[in-house]
Write a protein that binds this DNA or RNA. Structure first.
Lengths: 168, 168
DNA sequence: AGCCTGCTTGACCGATCGGTATACAGTCAA
DNA sequence: TTGACTGTATACCGATCGGTCAAGCAGGCT
């Protein structure tokens, strides 16, 4: 999975999964777009489910690292909202990859645990930042709502507005 | 589409689409589960995209009618939150069908317009109830967030909490 | 009668699904 | 030099995808 070809597969799969959905994207298409054989894909990941899980896990890891980076510079709830807008590594124009994945994957899919862990991590971070579980819950709902809007709205306005509300 | 067989198709498709996702459910499976031939399905709806659109449209129509019914009895923002919990006609245990559909469908899918219209209708209703666009926006984000949580959480607690927050 | 509609059975289309198999070439370390 | 590792190409597996087609049968309409 750490071989060059494996990395290319994961990069390509990540783009395609996010852009078109997980079920709609086939392994053959991923392999072809990555310039790799299906054999190599299966040597690296073993199954589509494992590839999907790796996609979600890495997406969380990268986003989380970026969040911590930004929080170190300017700690505060607003930074969490901003990070959803500013992540340079991948587009968020279609909304939250984890919300989308939760819509597609059955609850027993190995990737579903990654989704739950990601959301709980974000909520936990808000709790850590505010020191108030109730307020964290409130901010989390606001954040989820704003991110959900991005899925059917073209503009990130909702996130800006949510951030403003979070300040109040 | 108003024939008995057509209705059975739409009923069955609605259950399957909501339970397993749109892309993951095939027309052959729908037809079989409805006790109907693929021919009949295509005579009634013409294409899978049209069937998906009909599914979303009817889901909106029914939910909307139910919401208006309940608002007539007890007008207020809290009723909108409750209606997400109480709709008897279909399960909401997996979260919002429209959020899920938005995750799966390409933006140019005919069903996508139904999604946008539904969400805008809900937001508009909140605006009508509050008479305050900013507060409506805030409540809508809270509602979307709470409903999104249902997709990866087993319990409807988030909706209860969101309703409590909406009162404050 | 005759015809139209609603629905059936069942076969068929090309394409794609996730996944496996065989065979071969290059690179690197022991 | 001999492997093990990483990768290629290609063909294959059974199943399913969305969609179409030919033929036939029931019941209600005029």
């Amino acid at each position: 999975m750490t071989t060059p070809a494996g990395r290319r597969v994961l990069d390509t799969a990540s783009e395609l999964f996010y852009a078109h959905g997980i079920t709609a994207v086939g392994v053959a298409g991923i392999a072809e777009a990555a310039g790799v054989t299906k054999k190599t894909l299966y040597d690296s990941f073993g199954s589509k489910a494992a590839l999907v899980t790796a996609y979600l896990q890495r997406r969380h890891d990268r986003w989380w690292a970026y969040l911590q980076e930004r929080l170190a510079v300017s700690p505060g709830v607003g930074t969490v909202f901003d990070t959803y807008l500013a992540h340079p590594d991948f587009s968020t124009a279609r909304g939250c990859a984890f919300q989308h994945a939760a819509a597609e994957l059955p609850p027993d899919h190995p990737g579903f645990a990654v989704i739950r862990a990601h959301k709980e991590a974000v909520r936990g971070e808000l709790e850590r930042l505010t020191g108030d579980p109730d307020r964290a819950e409130y901010l989390f709902l606001l954040l989820e709502g704003a991110v959900a809007r991005r899925a059917f709205e073209g503009t990130p306005d909702a996130l800006e507005r949510a951030k403003a509300l979070a300040g109040a």
